[in-house]
């Protein structure tokens, strides 16, 4: 048994010099041990040559190729932080523009793929801890079932360079995505439309909310008001 482990360690180049010598001597005297080792080595070679190696799909590779500078992590992080800081002061409208496009894209992707939620639950006490465990913040999860908006679950997404919680509600057959991420300041509710979807947004209580749905404007605004109360 000890020999068996030693054979594997020897094969993997993990046996120290003294033990290697000892094992080589043992194999020279014991053809069965030698044969056992040869089989193991052959198996290892077969796995290396014949097992599939699965490279990442293109969508992961794209982000991998862009910044080789990830290797310069600290410098990059500082530039990034400076960029975010500048962005907050200088580029609020453009920032919102990009975020608006991203949240609508995420909504469309989720709907097309039929993958609306990572955690299916109508219970806010299930959804909230699930999200808190996976995000650096804890988004409020409101129960609006009394008002006719049923919580169906939540998912995680990555939009405009940050991780966000997406709460998924349903009104009749309309899916309503609520994107929640931390925000430095409050913002009054505002409404817009993009690609045929109605979008509402506001920020309060340290969180920014973007709401996307194909629900009609009036009901979506009602929903936003309920959420903001």
């Amino acid at each position: 048994m000890r020999d068996d482990k030693a054979l594997h360690a020897y094969l993997d180049g993990e046996l120290d010099a003294a033990a290697s010598l000892e094992l080589e001597r043992a194999m020279a005297e014991n053809p069965a041990l030698r044969a056992s080792y040869e089989r193991m080595r052959e198996l290892s070679a077969a796995v290396r040559e014949k097992a599939d190696y699965h490279p990442a799909p293109v969508r992961f590779e794209v982000s991998a190729r862009r910044p080789r500078t990830w290797m310069l992590a600290p410098a990059f992080a500082m530039v990034l932080l400076a960029g975010i800081g500048l962005g907050v002061f200088l580029a609020q409208p453009r920032d919102d523009e990009a975020l608006g496009a991203d949240v609508v894209a995420s909504h469309v992707r989720a709907t097309l793929a039929g993958r609306l939620v990572d955690v299916p639950s109508s219970d806010q006490h299930t959804v909230k801890p699930w999200l808190s465990a996976r995000l650096p913040f804890s988004p409020p999860v409101a129960d609006l079932s009394q008002e006719g908006y049923a919580l169906t679950g939540a998912r995680l997404d990555y939009v405009a360079g940050q991780s966000v919680a997406v709460l998924v509600y349903k009104r009749r057959e309309h899916v309503i995505d609520v994107f929640v991420s931390p925000a430095a300041r409050e913002a009054a509710p505002s409404a817009s439309a993009r690609d045929g979807f109605n979008v509402a947004r506001f920020a309060r209580g340290g969180m920014r909310y973007w709401i996307v749905s194909d629900l009609n404007r009036n009901e979506l605004d009602d929903f936003a008001k309920l959420l903001a109360r």
């Binding site: 044969a35 056992s36 089989r39 052959e42 198996l43 070679a45 077969a46 014949k50 097992a51």
Partner: peptide
């Protein structure tokens, strides 16, 4: 240890996977 030698190099990819 199985008595028969394993002819690993003759195995096909599918079997290994």
């Amino acid at each position: 240890p199985g008595p028969e030698a394993l002819l690993a190099r003759e195995l096909d990819r599918r079997a290994v996977n």
